[in-house]
């Protein structure tokens, strides 16, 4: 039993704080936690994010005809231990958007399915601690034919993506640090219009989607019972264009965002199959010239989000079943 809950942790991270629906994913794919072989961890999650100010290109502004743009997400996520070194993960959210002012209609629907394979080829004692290296590959694709062309109220960008990530984790006692770098390939999308203007005219309903990169650093406390971490994340769109003055946003905008946040995960002592997860994240900004350049927020909302979730571990392994009574399904 101990063995199971030691490894069943799921921690959520905030991924790209896009101008659109801020997508929270079941990002166990970006932490260093692995599920034990044949253990399946699954759970619902809810998040609420909102912004009043956004960057139109690099110009920070508010919009009285949008007011506060909010996104609610109801998701289902899971992580299965194929082996101790290879985990499979999925997430599927339902998203609902709303603008508090103006006349624009919110949108809702099932968004994109994400699948990841997380592989830990290397784990070794190093110094007083332990170093682990990971390779992670993922894909995502839309589960419904929602429109991406109604930003900032679209529920997503409707692009098929493939991502490749390398990640390193070092744990020293109860303290840990994880760092990762991700490259995201994004497939072109189709919109309902037959033409659109970016920095030039396009007589097509197909939109070229720029790829993106993501850097993530997490520091904190981690033991069998509790994880508490601070997370820094930087999402950069590699291409795309800026929203022009007082224009509407567009899916192929250059959306860049840097977020910081905290996550806490707690395993219920009396029911160790169950864990509770919560967190908070915010898009950061800086007036400073140097820092502002590093943060480089563009074409996204300055979103703040909270989320909560709980996860339950089901154990499919015969070996541990005998020692783990409550795992029955």
């Amino acid at each position: 039993m101990k063995k199971i809950f030691k490894t069943k942790t799921i921690i959520l991270v905030w991924l790209p704080a896009l101008l659109m629906a801020n997508t929270v994913s079941a990002q166990t794919d970006i932490d260093a936690i692995m599920m034990e072989k044949n253990a399946f961890c699954v759970g619902p999650m809810y998040s609420y994010s909102s912004w009043k100010k956004y960057w139109e290109g690099t110009l920070k502004r508010e919009n009285l005809n949008l007011g506060k743009v909010s996104t609610q997400m109801f998701g289902l996520m899971g992580n299965y231990g194929l082996t101790r070194k290879i985990n499979l993960l999925f997430s599927a959210p339902y998203v609902k958007t709303k603008a508090s002012a103006g006349t624009l209609h919110g949108m809702k629907g099932i968004q994109d399915l994400s699948l990841f394979v997380k592989w830990r080829p290397f784990q070794k004692k190093m110094g007083a601690g332990k170093l682990s290296l990971f390779g992670i590959a993922g894909v995502s694709f839309p589960l419904s034919n929602y429109t991406p062309d109604f930003l900032p109220l679209s529920i997503g960008l409707h692009s098929k993506t493939a991502s490749a990530r390398i990640m390193a984790d070092y744990q020293l006692g109860n303290l840990f640090a994880t760092g990762s770098a991700t490259y995201v390939f994004r497939d072109n999308i189709e919109i309902d219009r037959t033409s659109y203007y970016t920095t030039e005219m396009h007589y097509s309903n197909e939109v070229e989607m720029p790829n993106a990169s993501n850097y993530n650093v997490r520091l904190g406390f981690r033991n069998h019972r509790l994880i508490a971490e601070a997370v820094y994340n930087k999402w950069t769109t590699l291409g795309g264009f800026d929203i022009t003055r007082n224009n509407m946003p567009f899916p192929s905008n250059k959306m860049n965002a840097t977020t910081v946040g905290v996550n806490v995960k707690y395993v219920i002592p009396s029911l160790p199959q169950l864990s509770i997860v919560g967190g908070f994240t915010t898009t950061i900004d800086s007036e400073s010239k140097v820092l502002g350049k590093i943060i480089d927020s563009r074409n996204v909302g300055q979103a703040t989000a909270v989320y909560g979730s709980f996860f339950y571990v089901l154990d499919f392994s015969h070996k541990t079943k005998s020692t783990d009574k409550p795992a029955k399904k």
Partner: peptide
């Protein structure tokens, strides 16, 4: 599991290999 692994591999290959140039209708 095997089919999902295959699916990931196939989709990744398609997305990474695809040509992104958009051709206008005219």
């Amino acid at each position: 599991i095997f089919s999902s692994l295959m699916a990931i591999a196939v989709v990744t290959t398609i997305i990474v290999a695809c040509n992104k140039d958009v051709e206008g209708r005219t």
